[in-house]
Every structure is written in C-alpha cells, then in structure tokens.
Design a binder for these strands. Structure first.
Lengths: 249, 249
DNA sequence: CGTGTTATTGACCAACATCAAACTTAGTGG
DNA sequence: CCACTAAGTTTGATGTTGGTCAATAACACG
C-alpha cells in the first residue's frame, strides 16, 4: 500500500480520465491523489479478474490495453469492451460484488489497484466523486448499448469502422493519439470476438478499409486516413461517449 | 406534483424493485415513499422519452411494458432492453443528461415521473439509496453485456430462449408471473429488433420452441413448459441479473 | 363485418462462417 | 546476426444461418 507523499503519477491518469467526462473541483482532485493503491503488472493475454471473482479493489489502467469478455456455453468468447489508460474497467465491482465477466490484459499492462474500502470512503466524503464514478459506469453502459446496436444491426464493414472510430476518439480524449495515428494492439481474432465476426471476415473487411484509403495500418499502429469517410462508413456518432469536450485535440 | 399523504401505491412498486436487488433500511423506504411524482399514461407504441432529449425527471414504470431502442443510420432499429413494472428505465438520465436512445411504450403504460431534483436530494441524504440506484444502473449494464454476448455469439434459437428466460425471471422477481406463465406483450418484429433477427426468422424459431414443448403461447401470454430445457436451450444463467434472492417464487 | 396489424409460409439469396493451407512477422536463443 | 518457432495474417474453396421478398392467413378491435 503506497503512502503517496510524492506525486503518484499513476492516479493523475485517473483524474485526467474523470475530467474528460465530469466536472471535478480541486478538493476532489486532492482526495483522489491521496487514494492508496498498489501497482501490479500483467503479461499479455493474462486474466486480471475472472468471472465469478469477488474483487476487493478496483483497477485503474495505467499502461497498456485490456478488454472485458465473457465465455459462453460452447467455448465461444464475446469481448464486451476495450480499455485504455485511465479507465477503471471493473469499477462496477464496487457495487456488483460478483464479476459476471472477466478482465484481461491485451498487452503487457500496468494497473493501480485501489481498495473498495478507500473508494467507498472517498465517495462518502465527496459527492462530486460519487457522481463522476457513477457517470463513468453509466458511460460504460452507453458503450455497451452502442455495441449492441452494432452487433445487432450493423454490417461487418460498419462495425469494424465503428470500433476503430470509438477507440480513436477515446484515445484522443486521453491524448494518446498523434494526428490520426494510434496504437490498436488487438489481433484480428480479438476484433472478431468483439464484433461477433470470424477472423477471416475481419481480415477481409480490413483489407477493404485499407484499399478504400479510410485507414492504413502497420502492425499494431492504425492511421486514420480519412476521418470523415471512416465515420460515415461506421455510422459513427460520438455522442454516445458523453465526453465533456468532444472537440479536444 | 403529488403531496403523498395517503400511501402512494405507485412508489411501493419501486421499493419492491429496489428490494429485489439491494438492501434498503426502513428509513430509506420512508424517504422513497415521500418522493414527489406525477403520473402519466402513454398509449401503445408511443415514445416516452426520445434520443436527444434532456429529461428533467426519471420515470418509474407502474403499469405496462416498455422498451429502450436506438434508431440507426439506415432506418434500422435496435431494441436494447425490455422493461416491466418497478423499473426505472431512464434512471441514467440523472447523470447522463442527454438521452442516447429512446424509451417507448410497448403497451398502454402508466409511469410515475420523479423530478431529478428530488432524486438528487434523496441520494444526498441517504447513501443506501444512492447505492441502490447506482446498483440498478450497474445491473442495467450487466444486462446489456449479456445481450451483447447473445447477439454477438449465440444462435437465433439460443437468443430467443434466452430473452424469454430473462423476462420470466425478472417478472417472477416482481411477482408478475403465475406458475410459469406470464405476459410478454411483444410482437415478433420487436423480438427480432431486440435480438438482431428478422421477423420471419423469429417466427420460425418460436415454432420450433413450441414444437419442442419448451414453451407455449396464446397471444401475448407465454407459458414455460419446460424450464430446465428452456434454460439449457438459451444458455441461460441467472447470475448476470444480480438478484438478491434468485430462488424467490 | 371490415380493416389494419400480426403471424405464418414458401422461394430464393447473401453475408458471413468454416475449414484448411500458406505466408508474414515478431520474438528467441544460439 | 541468423535460424527457428509460434503467433498472427492472408487466401481460396465451400457451406449455412438467417435475410429478403411477397403472398396468405389469423386475429383484434371498433
């Protein structure tokens, strides 16, 4: 457990994230920085929390990429969300004790674990923080809704374009993009599992998107070549992300 | 705006609902019953709140069925959830001011609208109520996740069996079932829009389920003929509903 | 009883899945 | 620095679930 005398950089990320979705007075910021946490690193492709677990702390993603997923009856997998630095991917465990899905590292990943106790305490003292956290979980739900709409009603091309737009916008809000290019360390199999598609089909659609100059990609880097067209192709409308300042960057 | 001197039956439903998912001390119950609200009735197939709206109150469903849905680019519709009496289908508007989807009455519907002001006030005073509300929105998200998994990875048969199981269990928790039979006032087109299927296919799958004696249905009534098999057919596991007492009824 | 909505049926079709193999790339250890 | 390996990507051939279109039958309601 850290006694944060010198500035804990790790939690500044959390503050940046919360600031991107809610108002936070300075007093709340101080309280957040004083939160106890312990850092932990996970290798690529390892579970951080598992379906059925009853975690006693919430994770703040500090470095790397993660995803939440469910395993279904026939050994199939559905990825429910991708997570980037600043996210608290299992914040819901604060009031939903039993995990109904798993959280996994997509790359080597660093996380700061904050005890539920401390989080409950801070929400009791700072209503603004409660609202910010609550709002974060509500946006989570909004993203699930959007994905549901995509998987339910959009074509493979739309879904893939859409998810690229989403990750791009979220990364940009955290200043993790460089004029149109960003890391997307997700295999085509993982993309498929997130969109309800087969690897083969994901591959073919990605080729189309590259051929049509909507994106280009070298390895895990994606470059948005034509933002307008990509948004149109993905039927993408940012508003479901409920960002405070969409224009940022 | 009602001055609730005599017992407002309408809000007792809300209490029953919250009790099914969280602990509520008696003091909190009193406070909930004192909440101001105004009753409103909606005809079948009319919007209650629309995408883009900024509602100033949250609705408690008192009578009837409702659903949340999104309209997508090409005029397609994705239904995101079904709602039964006791639900607060737009509770998220308390902290997500702009609606990213619409709420619609599936049948003639009665709703109690509680001002955000009063809700914010009550959550400031009663932390247990905050937790109960928050938890309700978290369960909402859990249901979206489950639907996402279904639409992404389950077959048409599984999806349809699954959604029947879900509505059944939720209605049972609210004592709205009679040994295995309950109302499901949803057209096959609506079922399709909730599961990412065409009307025609929904129809054929329903016939299979009836032929195999998993369910039977007369009009808007569904009877569970074989609960074990239906659950198996739908790959259904209640835990994602996070009910306090699953065995109830 | 008529009229509009909902359910059902049949014929045909397309998007996407599956299977299997080959090719690339990124790491790893010698 | 290079061979070796495993993971990931790409390609081709073929199959199937579930979509579309269009017509008919059942209802529900005034």
């Amino acid at each position: 457990m850290t006694a944060p005398d010198n500035p804990p950089q790790e939690l500044r990320l959390l503050i940046a994230k919360l600031r991107s979705i809610a108002e936070l007075p300075d007093s709340a910021e101080q309280a957040l920085l004083a939160l106890p946490f312990r850092l932990k690193t996970f290798a690529e492709n390892t579970d951080i929390v598992r379906q059925g677990d009853r975690p006693g702390e919430c994770a703040v993603l500090v470095e790397g990429f993660a995803c939440r997923y469910k395993l279904l009856g026939e050994g199939q997998r559905q990825i429910m969300s991708f997570h980037i630095p600043g996210d608290m991917p299992d914040l819901q465990s604060l009031h939903l004790p039993v995990m109904d899905h798993s959280l996994m590292a997509l790359t080597r990943t660093k996380l700061a674990f904050v005890p539920h106790l401390a989080l409950n305490e801070i929400t009791r003292t700072y209503p603004e923080i409660t609202v910010a956290f609550w709002r974060d979980t509500l946006i989570d739900a909004a993203v699930f809704r959007e994905w549901l709409a995509g998987v339910g009603r959009r074509t493979a091309h739309q879904r893939i374009a859409h998810v690229i737009c989403e990750v791009y916008v979220r990364m940009r809000a955290m200043r993790l993009t460089e004029n149109g290019s960003f890391q997307l360390p997700v295999t085509q199999a993982e993309l498929g599992d997130s969109l309800g598609l087969s690897t083969v089909h994901v591959n073919r659609v990605l080729q189309d998107l590259r051929r049509d100059r909507l994106i280009s990609s070298k390895g895990r880097f994606v470059v948005i070549e034509n933002w307008e067209l990509l948004q149109a192709a993905g039927d993408f409308d940012v508003s479901y992300l409920h960002l405070k300042d969409v224009k940022a960057a």
